[in-house]
Design a protein around this nucleic acid. Structure first.
Lengths: 121, 121
DNA sequence: CAACTGTATTACTGGTTGATTGATTAATCA
DNA sequence: TGATTAATCAATCAACCAGTAATACAGTTG
């Protein structure tokens, strides 16, 4: 019956989605999907600069999406919310599907349609 | 094996999530989850003003999340992307779980813990 | 201890985007 | 024409993001 979403949820939901609505943060999360990483490793894997990565990691930690562990000089981060991978997976699949649909449409226009139905606008 | 997310996907994914990263748009989508609605109905159900709703509906339509149908004076919108409801459902469940976890933690502090382990800070 | 190095965070800035609102316009129909 | 519905315009305000520079922190070395 898909219970309706209560008003108080809307802001919380928006906040969750907002965390995922940035390519840099997604790149960081993707890096953490392979396992725990320190800041320098994340910097290397994402190609973003350190201050920027650090800032986004802080946001993600405050939102509860990643967890922090300090060890000597280094700070290690890891995924802390199973939701992340599930949401990313769903969206990725959708992107693939949409790309496939586009391909099919083009294909139909290019070969399947040639010669037939000549007068159509 | 959870195939890695390719770089080219990051922006597309961020764009998808960004559409859902706003409480007003979520309220609009929730309204449409009950079925097709015209703009006035969405305005009433969301409590936002007409210009605002109209603008967000346009964004959602351009992103392909909703579909548009004009009939006389009115314009009807409906959900057009099965992803929306699945993503919202996932996030809602997570919010409920997190709230539950908070409740449990408080409960444990209040009654389960009283008397025992007296010296702990 | 003081100086120094490597690692991570914070502060500040400029530029961009986004949300909201009131007023106006466009389209449709009585 | 007048009423209704939706889209657009113009203006304001807030949020966000990248980048540089400055700061903090832990550990090492002299």
């Amino acid at each position: 019956m898909a219970a309706a979403i209560p008003d108080e949820f809307l802001d919380l939901m928006a906040e969750k989605f907002r965390m995922l609505a940035d390519a840099t943060r997604l790149a960081i999360l993707r890096s953490l999907m392979s396992g725990e990483r320190n800041v320098t490793q994340v910097v290397d894997e994402t190609g973003r600069n350190q201050a920027n990565v650090s800032k986004h990691l802080k946001m993600l930690a405050e939102a509860g999406l990643v967890a922090r562990r300090k060890e000597g000089l280094q700070v290690f981060y890891r995924l802390n919310d199973p939701l992340v991978e599930r949401l990313c997976k769903l969206v990725c699949e959708t992107i693939v599907e949409e790309a496939q649909k586009d391909l099919d449409r083009q294909k139909r226009l290019l070969d399947g349609w040639s010669g037939r139905n000549p007068g159509a606008a």
